[in-house]
Design a protein around this nucleic acid. Structure first.
Lengths: 346, 346
DNA sequence: TTGTACGCGTTATCAT
DNA sequence: ATGATAACGCGTACAA
């Protein structure tokens, strides 16, 4: 089928191509009558301009992009919402791009920058071990928002910006909370083992608290989630906690390094006939809704998602405007004690 | 900054533009040596082809798109995963596009078809009250996958395809289950009131069951969720259930028309000192993970999400291949009785 | 196997 | 206010 183009519209209206273009793009230099007439024909024919051609020609798109790796993460939804709002306020348009787990987010970014003439990028999720060489090709400002992400340590810090929570420290806080309640055998449900991954950082915080309290680190209490299903899922928390229980290893508390895992862990404990927190305390991490509504409500580390998102987008626009060149901001998180943690048994 | 183009590469390599193009696109007619040389230069310079220009030229992209309205819906994640897999098997590429709640999904589709030379579209989420006129401009096959969606009733059914669950019937099944347990005062947590919205359909199923059992419909037991926060969220379930409780209206069961709402409702009941299901039964709808892991596990209507997704993508490819022209498929859902529903009190 | 030249649909520039 | 025309960056006939 012969796609209808701006030329056809021009012909049908008996005007020049540029006049049609003016009508479409709300240009000032056009007679209202002509414009109306053209718009009528466009409506009637159902003409839709080709974005590829537009992007090709357009110098300036006034748009930024968010590259999201792991759309499942409920924390991202909130962040994206905030980013969308702020972007609109600045009269920018936002390109939301979902990156497959097997894709390289920098490659995707590189493509997108050219394709859409982006002015900036926000990376949400993913691990960042990109070659400095490659990332130097990214000629627009970009920010790593490290919620569910590790900050790239192998790249010069002046090259990029980041917004993060100190995962190691906050994880320490949570573990210390449990130890403070008298728990000596604290199991941890942990995900990725890659260096600098959040999973790893949270594990280190756990070890920090242990060693500070003079508690020997027990490898058997560190349970890695299944690798072949989604890492931070309730199912994985359930499976991993179940294995822990069946292992016979003694513990009075479980620190699940994500609320999603904590929910699954709770279920496993309950099914095994254990009470929470009377028999076993359960702690999560992230501060997502489900922990608040679960029964029992789950003690967690709440990341200030909205504030982080606001800061992220503000920083990006500051960099775009040349008011800043880069910045690395660490946000404090908050320990929220709810019903799932209590004094150690006995 | 002067963006680097295919011309620059050609010049630097001392070859013609088309040769570079051949190298990039894995064309057969090219000397491996030449190709390697070119690829090296591309790597070194960090050249990335401009997708807009490519799309503009390319006649055939072998790609389809999924337009998702309401990325928050956990059901969508599963569907998308399946669709991605099947699409890859067919050697097609998939464009995943998030549609804002205020955007018209057909407009977005129209744009995208031109921009990316799509061969087909799957609509996930959104309400479909589009003018037939507009939708007739959509010249590629499209399917409405009605999970969290209402099928467009105002458009000729030969124009589109749909994959759905009979919301009214399944809702009837759940309500009948509760009535069968002896419940006479069943409250319902319901969302949208637009005609043919899933919220409305599920409400009708509820009324069907009531009238069949000879139970008078009590308007006061129909609780609409807050309109200004996300409809199908735990928070909304919590707030709405709390209001119901505080209203003093008598009920022994709550049918939450989404599992997310059910979770919030459970929390509200528990906080009010009620036991589930001993004092009040709670039923959900959708069959998402959280219901399975909640305490108590929530009785629900499980939509066969994966099967539906598989059928959707298969149907789309059938239509693209011309093996079919359109089809409307209704999937049976499954009542899963778990811990949150039991005999009526007293 | 390789290079040249045209056109994809649009916007921007320059006349008019 | 309007129209002709040159890019935008790439793919692809076609010629070599």
């Amino acid at each position: 089928m012969p796609e209808i183009t701006i030329k056809d519209i021009a012909k049908q209206c008996g005007v020049g191509i540029s006049t049609v273009s003016r009508a479409i793009n709300n240009h000032p230099d056009i007679n209202p009558e002509t414009k109306n007439m053209i718009m009528d024909v466009i409506k009637a024919t159902g003409f839709v301009p080709n974005n590829s051609a537009r992007n090709l020609k357009r110098i300036d798109a006034k748009s930024i992009a968010v590259l999201v790796k792991g759309i499942t993460n409920p924390l991202f939804s909130d962040m994206i919402k905030v980013i969308e709002e702020e972007t609109q306020k600045k009269k920018y348009s936002l390109v939301l791009k979902h990156v497959e787990y097997y894709e390289d987010e920098v490659d995707v970014a590189l493509e997108l920058v050219k394709e859409k003439r982006l002015r900036g990028i926000i990376f949400l999720g993913g691990y960042f071990f990109h070659s400095q060489e490659k990332i130097e090709n990214l000629t627009v400002p970009y920010i790593f928002s490290t919620i569910g992400t590790a900050v790239p340590e192998n790249i010069s810090r002046v090259l990029y910006s980041s917004i993060a929570v100190d995962d190691r420290k906050e994880s320490y806080v949570m573990t210390a909370h449990l130890i403070g309640l008298g728990h000596r055998n604290v199991a941890i449900l942990s995900a990725e083992s890659e260096i600098n991954s959040i999973g790893q950082l949270r594990l280190e915080g756990y070890r920090d608290a242990l060693s500070e309290a003079g508690i020997a680190f027990n490898e058997k209490l560190v349970r890695r989630v299944e690798d072949d299903i989604e890492h931070y899922s309730m199912e994985n928390g359930y499976i991993t906690a179940k294995k822990l229980i069946e292992s016979g290893e003694k513990f009075t508390a479980i620190f699940a390094t994500a609320d999603m895992l904590a929910v699954g862990a709770c279920r496993a404990l309950l099914e095994a006939g254990m009470r929470i927190p009377e028999d076993v305390s359960v702690a999560g991490y992230d501060g997502i809704d489900v922990g608040k509504y679960y029964n029992p409500a789950i003690t967690t580390i709440k990341q200030p998602v909205k504030e982080m998102a606001k800061t992220t987008i503000k920083l990006l626009f500051d960099i775009i405007a040349g008011r800043k060149s880069y910045e690395h901001i660490v946000f404090p998180a908050e320990l929220i004690v709810r019903e799932s943690t209590g004094p150690a048994k006995g």
